[in-house]
């Protein structure tokens, strides 16, 4: 255990990696959302062009590997931490009033994270896998027609429901996770921390809400 002192292995180090990967994944969400919004505000061809750009532009490709690594690290680290946390209390309380002193989201980060991970796997199978390895037709501009695939998926009520629930889960995850990352890194300040907390919560609601709006829009709107 003596070697576990620096930036690896200790409880604090594991949390730093959770925070850093988490914050990186948050920035990715913004990019992802901007592209997705073209489903509502653009044409199918715009969306396909965006998808083609994301899968072929070299710098983005590099970032995407970083992204995959972050997801894996965030998930694995999170599972390790959660297991340690469970081991730290081998006998549970007969009565435990968690709601008395902490928010629901903060007490269920692992659960929300696992659900989010499940969603990512399903989501990647549905779109990312099909985009990379599936047999997709081409649109008018010669790009892979991810748009049609997306619209078809979202026209299924169960898929959209799953998607929306997953976004709610992610929203809760970020509701706590965003500002928690700053606390973990020690980036706190009497003036700025309340702002970070507000931005984090607003981010969780707006971004996850917007993500959830897209499949609902597809499902409800008769035109797409």
């Amino acid at each position: 255990m003596a070697s576990q002192r620096g930036l690896f292995g200790t409880s604090l180090a594991r949390k730093y990696w959770m925070a850093l990967t988490g914050l990186f994944l948050i920035t990715f969400l913004v990019i992802h959302l901007l592209g997705n919004l073209s489903i509502i505000f653009g044409t199918g061809e715009d969306f396909n062009a965006y998808a083609a750009f994301m899968t072929s532009f070299p710098p983005i490709k590099i970032v995407s590997y970083l992204l995959y690594a972050s997801i894996v690290l965030h998930a694995v680290d999170g599972i390790v931490l959660a297991r340690q946390n469970m081991a730290a209390r081998p006998v549970n309380y007969g009565s435990y009033n968690g709601a008395a002193n902490a928010g629901w989201a903060s007490r269920n980060m692992a659960l929300l994270g696992i659900f989010t991970l499940l969603f990512i796997l399903v989501h990647m199978k549905s779109f990312w896998y099909e985009m990379h390895f599936g047999e997709l037709g081409l649109d008018a501009n010669g790009n892979k027609d991810l748009f049609t695939l997306t619209v078809t998926a979202f026209d299924q009520v169960w898929y959209t429901a799953f998607y929306v629930i997953a976004m709610i889960a992610l929203g809760f995850h970020l509701w706590h996770g965003f500002q928690s990352a700053f606390q973990t890194m020690g980036w706190t300040h009497p003036t700025y921390t309340p702002i970070v907390q507000f931005v984090g919560r607003a981010f969780a609601v707006v971004v996850c809400g917007a993500f959830a709006l897209i499949p609902l829009y597809v499902l409800i709107s008769p035109n797409v």
Partner: peptide, 28 residues
Amino acid sequence: GFGNCTNTGACEVECPKGISIENIARMN
């Protein structure tokens, strides 16, 4: 064998001396 910090803030609420989790940030 203590667990890790999830920053729930429960500790500062229950602390009889009202010690702030700002200290946790400082230790981080």
